[in-house]
Amino acid sequence: MFPEADKIVLLEEDLEVSPDFISYFDQTYHLLDIDPSLYCVSAWNDHGYNHTVGDPAQLYRIGFLPGLGWMLKRSLFFEELLPKWPPPWTDFDWDVMLRLSEHRKGRDCIIPDISRTYHFGYIGKHVGASMQFKYFYDHAFNTIPDVKLKDVDNMVFHKYEEMLMNALTGSVMVNGLAHDQTSCDGVFAPAPTNKTYVLFIRMQGPEDVGVWEKLSTCLNLWDLDIRGDHRGVWRFWYNGNPVIVVGVPYAELSSFAVHSQGEAVIFGGERSKRATSMGRWPPGLHRDMSEDRVRRFRLSSDAVNKAEADQRADREGEDT
C-alpha cells in the first residue's frame, strides 16, 4: 500500500487525533531526510499537560521515543526495525524495544509543545483507569486547525543547539529554591512575565536522576520514568512562562548555561517516599470537568464497553 511513500506514521487505536494532525507531519517530514541524527517525529509530548504548555506552534528535540502517533522513514521501519519486531506470542512491548539504545542508536525525536494526539483508553495491558486518570487525563491536546509551526528547520541538531544557547543567554535564573524543599509552590513566577526561566539541577550523569524525579513530581510532570530531555536539558512552560531545566554538570550545555548566568544556584534533594508513592497530581486536586473532558471520558467508557462486549462474544462463541 502506497509504495511511493517514503515515510510511515504509526498510530495506536486508543488515540484521538488533532485537527492539524496531518498538517503537523506534513510540515516536519523533511527533517527526517536532512538530519540523519533524527529517529522520528512524534505527535506526543510526555510532559505536555494543561499547566505545562504554552505554544501550539513550538517544537522540541528530545532523546527519547514518545510514541502515541509518530512518523519515521519507511526504510528505517522495514530495514532496521521490522526484522527485529517482537513476535505476537512474546511478552515484550514494541515501544520498549524501539526505545532501547541498540535500536535508537543515539538518534533524537521531534515533539510538539502541545500534543497532536490524546490517549483516551483506560483498559489495556499497561494502562488502567488509575494510570489513565493520573498521567493522561489532563494532557493538553491541540484543537486549533492549520497551526503553522515555527522554527521547523531549527530542529536540525546544530541549529537546535544554537537556538538553545540563545534562549539560555537571555534567561532568568530561578534561585529561590531551598535544597530540602518538597513543594514547588512559589518556585516560578505566578503569572506570565515575557521571560524565559532557567533552573539548574544536580545531575552527575544519565543515571543520576533523583533531583529530576523530585522536580517532575512536584511540578506535576510525567514522573514514572526519565524522558523528554535533550542531553540533560528539559523544556516546558509553567505559569505561562517558558522554562529550561539544565542538569549540571551532565548536560553538554551546562557549562555554557552556568557561564551565561555568571553563577548558578543548583537545585538538589530527592523525592520523598510520600511523593514517590502518590506520583504526579496529588489526590483531591480539582479536575476540570469541561464538556471536552466529559466527552473524552465517554470515549474511554465506549472503549471499555466495546472490549467487554467483545470478550462476552468470544466466550459465547467458545461455549457454542
Rank of each mutant, 00 (worst) to 15 (best):
300 S>T: 12
243 V>K: 03
195 K>M: 13
305 N>P: 07
60 Y>G: 08
232 G>S: 09
85 W>D: 07
212 W>T: 01
190 P>Y: 02
300 S>K: 06
46 D>I: 13
133 F>P: 02
259 H>I: 12
212 W>I: 05
250 Y>A: 06
17 V>Y: 05
185 D>T: 15
233 V>Y: 00
182 T>P: 09
114 I>W: 01
262 G>Q: 07
139 H>G: 04
212 W>Y: 08
68 L>V: 14
158 H>Y: 10
37 S>L: 13
18 S>W: 02
199 L>Y: 08
197 Y>C: 04
196 T>D: 06
170 G>F: 04
245 V>Y: 00
175 N>D: 15
268 G>V: 10
163 M>I: 12
36 P>W: 08
178 A>C: 09
80 E>G: 10
175 N>L: 10
27 Q>L: 01
44 W>C: 04
28 T>K: 00
168 L>M: 08
240 G>A: 06
296 R>K: 13
100 L>P: 07
120 F>I: 01
146 D>N: 14
212 W>S: 01
24 Y>S: 02
280 R>A: 13
148 K>L: 14
225 D>K: 11
231 R>N: 15
276 T>I: 12
118 Y>Q: 00
105 K>L: 15
310 D>R: 08
93 D>C: 13
275 A>G: 08
148 K>S: 13
13 E>N: 15
283 P>G: 06
122 Y>F: 10
302 D>Y: 10
220 N>C: 10
12 E>C: 08
238 Y>C: 12
276 T>V: 11
222 W>F: 09
77 F>C: 05
286 H>I: 14
27 Q>N: 04
144 I>L: 13
129 A>E: 10
59 L>Q: 05
309 A>Q: 12
224 L>F: 07
24 Y>I: 05
58 Q>W: 13
40 C>A: 14
83 P>I: 10
217 T>F: 03
319 D>K: 15
70 W>Q: 10
84 K>F: 09
139 H>E: 11
19 P>M: 01
114 I>A: 03
250 Y>I: 05
213 E>V: 09
259 H>N: 15
254 S>L: 02
103 H>M: 13
221 L>T: 03
55 D>N: 11
43 A>E: 04
221 L>M: 05
117 T>A: 03
186 G>F: 01
93 D>P: 06
123 I>F: 06
218 C>R: 07
105 K>E: 14
200 F>S: 00
109 C>S: 10
69 G>R: 02
263 E>Y: 15
155 M>E: 05
53 V>N: 01
273 K>G: 09
91 D>A: 14
32 L>G: 00
163 M>C: 14
176 G>C: 05
178 A>R: 11
275 A>R: 07
140 A>V: 02
23 S>G: 14
209 V>F: 04
205 G>Q: 04
110 I>H: 00
168 L>E: 02
68 L>E: 09
302 D>N: 12
133 F>W: 13
282 P>V: 08
45 N>C: 03
115 S>C: 00
12 E>P: 05
